[in-house]
């Protein structure tokens, strides 16, 4: 049996995904160094087709698409990651309490989770951002509010199964307290499915963020990939690259995260990959 590291890093899909993600993160981190222009600055004539001078062309106002892509990577990644962290934190809390304490606590929290899973999440996110007025914060809040239920369910399921294991009973018998048992005995053993679900959630968060930005609900003053597609859609007929290029960026990034997330899953649960 190979080690986790061999199984994970020996997977060509994971390597491809990590390579693209590494590039995006690098570009996002070094955005001001790489793109000399501010993304909203007019640098040339509008509708320039990609060329050597303007590698990805210019948009309807003559802004550099390259600068937009680079700064957009920043916005998209930061919003998606912060939203994911928030929903993982909240979802874990809800799932852990529900699964560990059971009974009425479980009933109440699970009703709440089911409720949030039933209401159409994307429309809820639209309403939230619209009412909170669009900003980076309201995007993060909206995405987190609609994304936590799956995390809560995964954590609850895992906590229920770990809680039934005998080492947890043994800990009760030697007098360990509830919170210590939850945090030292139970939660550490639910980590691997949580990591997998959490990493896949980043991809979903990017898709929601770009769809909201596409509808014009993005953070004003922040360039993002979804906004670029939305701004370019009216010029589809004459300037196809305005829409195509940022769309490809979203696609590749989401794809890479999914590949890495699935690679994690296969490496953590080796039996499935043996099939």
């Amino acid at each position: 049996m190979n080690t986790f590291r061999q199984r994970f890093m020996g997977n060509p899909r994971v390597i491809a995904g990590l390579a693209w993600l590494g590039l995006v993160v690098l570009v996002a981190a070094a955005a001001p160094l790489i793109a000399s222009h501010h993304p909203f600055e007019i640098v040339a004539e509008p509708f320039l087709i990609p060329s050597l001078e303007h590698p990805f062309g210019t948009d309807s106002l003559g802004r550099s698409i390259w600068a937009g892509l680079v700064h957009g990577a920043r916005t998209t990644l930061v919003i998606a990651i912060l939203a994911t962290l928030a929903s993982v934190a909240f979802g874990t809390l809800v799932g852990a309490l529900a699964g560990y304490f059971g009974g009425l606590v479980d009933d109440g929290l699970m009703r709440l989770t089911e409720f949030f899973q039933t209401i159409p999440s994307f429309i809820f996110a639209i309403v939230l951002v619209a009412i909170l007025t669009p900003s980076a914060t309201s995007l993060i809040v909206a995405i987190a509010v609609v994304s936590w239920p799956p995390i809560a369910r995964v954590v609850r399921g895992e906590v229920l199964s770990v809680k039934a294991r005998e080492y947890v009973q043994a800990a009760v018998l030697v007098g360990q307290g509830d919170m210590a048992i939850l945090f030292r005995q139970v939660l550490p053993n639910t980590l691997s499915p949580l990591i997998v679900t959490g990493s896949l959630l980043v991809a979903t968060a990017i898709l929601i963020e770009s769809a909201l930005s596409f509808l014009g609900l993005g953070a004003p003053n922040l360039m993002s990939w979804g906004f670029m597609v939305g701004a370019g859609r009216s010029f589809l007929r004459d300037a196809w690259w305005l829409v195509t290029i940022p769309g490809v960026a979203i696609l590749l990034t989401v794809l890479s995260i999914n590949l890495v997330g699935e690679g994690l899953n296969d490496a953590l649960n080796p039996r499935l990959s043996d099939l």
């Binding site: 294991r165 005998e166 043994a170 018998l173 030697v174 053993n189």
Partner: peptide, 17 residues
């Protein structure tokens, strides 16, 4: 608590990995 202690059935589930 210490007065009664248990030995469990499943050797693979009774120790925290």
């Amino acid at each position: 608590r210490h007065l009664v202690q248990m030995v469990f059935q499943d050797p693979f589930a009774s120790l925290n990995p």
